[in-house]
Amino acid sequence: MTAEATTASRRRLVQVYALYLLAALVFFGPVLFMLWSAFRRNVDITGSIFTIATPLTLENFTNLFDRFVFYYYIRNSFIVAGGSTLLGLALGVPAAYVIVRRGAASIGFLMLLARMAPGVLFVLPLFILSVQVGAPSNNGLNFALLIAAHLIITLPLCIWLLVPFFEDIPLSLEEAAMLDGCTVWQRFRHVVVPLALPGLSVAVTLSFVFSWNYFLFALALANADTLPLPVIAFNFIGQGSSDYGGLMAASTLISLPALLLTVFAQRWLVRGLTGGAVK
């Protein structure tokens, strides 16, 4: 390799790493600022962002747990996000299988339309339904209504994430199981679902994260006892003044479960995303 070619190769390598660094700053810069601000005083956050030598404190987190029963709202978020994720899988996995094996693409398209519609389109009908069934005064009904509302997010996501995986499973495997005497349910349970586990891991992770972070339905439908974490973070922003330190601390704690789930499922998540993209 000539000196000119070596220089050009090194220049391209530097450019590639520079682009990687720029992308990292764009994507991780706000997250790092959130983490840093969670340990700073409110007066330091509203000052210059270039003032690095500011004292760090745990006051934002202690005030957060003193002001709210934070564990209670964490439980609420797990109930809503976990319930909508599990129910979305219970309904979405068979639905995706039927769409692939029966050619019912129109059903999948209708579910996709529901996901593409803005969430505010569903708020008023769900609120009227909530009042009619007495959900605002009944915590069990309120949780059920919130989980059903979040199905608008999780169910189409599960279906359209799993369709490519079911399409990649050869029909001959099911035919062989049928010759061995397996019923439709046995073929689905023992043959199809185990082969689609990477897709299931993707569906679980993304459905949980989307439902965990969703704000609109909880703001309109939850009562004081069923409020999830994103609505609590909204309380730190006021018309006259805002507690940015408390907001950053709350945002950090809200992001932590979804981040831990993503890190834990990273291996299956990458395998599932790449597996569903390759035919």
Rank of each mutant, 00 (worst) to 15 (best):
V123R: 00
V14G: 08
V193R: 04
L87N: 07
T51Q: 12
A90S: 08
R40T: 04
A177D: 09
V131R: 10
S106G: 00
L22Q: 07
Q186Y: 00
L269Q: 01
Y244M: 07
V202D: 06
L21V: 11
P164C: 05
T154D: 02
L146Q: 08
A81F: 03
D168W: 10
F78Q: 05
L155Y: 01
M178P: 13
L124N: 12
L206D: 00
R67V: 06
F127C: 07
G181R: 12
T62G: 07
R189V: 15
I169W: 04
T183V: 12
E175I: 13
F28S: 06
L113R: 09
A96N: 05
I49A: 14
G181D: 10
V231P: 11
V163P: 02
F210E: 02
L197W: 10
F68V: 13
S137Q: 10
L261N: 00
L229I: 15
S9K: 03
L216S: 02
T51Y: 00
R101A: 03
N63A: 10
T183P: 13
L58A: 14
I159K: 11
F70E: 02
Y17L: 08
F210T: 10
N60H: 06
H150K: 03
T46W: 09
T262Y: 12
N42S: 03
L219F: 12
L86T: 01
Y71Q: 12
L229W: 06
R75N: 00
R189G: 13
A90R: 06
G199L: 08
A90M: 14
L253H: 05
I79Y: 01
Q132R: 12
A258R: 03
T57W: 04
M178S: 15
W185Y: 14
S207N: 01
V193T: 01
Y20H: 13
S130E: 04
P257K: 00
I254L: 12
P230C: 03
T252E: 00
R115L: 15
W160L: 13
Q186G: 12
I254E: 08
V93A: 11
N138G: 00
T46A: 13
A144S: 10
F50N: 14
T51W: 00
G119A: 14
F234S: 14
A265H: 10
F109L: 15
F165G: 02
R10I: 08
I45E: 09
P230I: 04
A218S: 11
A277G: 06
T226H: 06
A203D: 03
G238R: 14
F39A: 14
N139D: 03
A265K: 03
R271G: 14
V14P: 02
L197I: 15
S84N: 04
I254A: 06
V204F: 11
F215T: 02
Q132L: 11
A23W: 09
I254S: 03
L151H: 06
L86K: 06
T274E: 02
W268Q: 15
I153C: 09
Y73W: 08
M248W: 08
V69T: 04
L260I: 15
L129P: 05
P194M: 13
T2H: 04
F28I: 15
I152Q: 04
F50P: 11
F50A: 15
T46I: 15
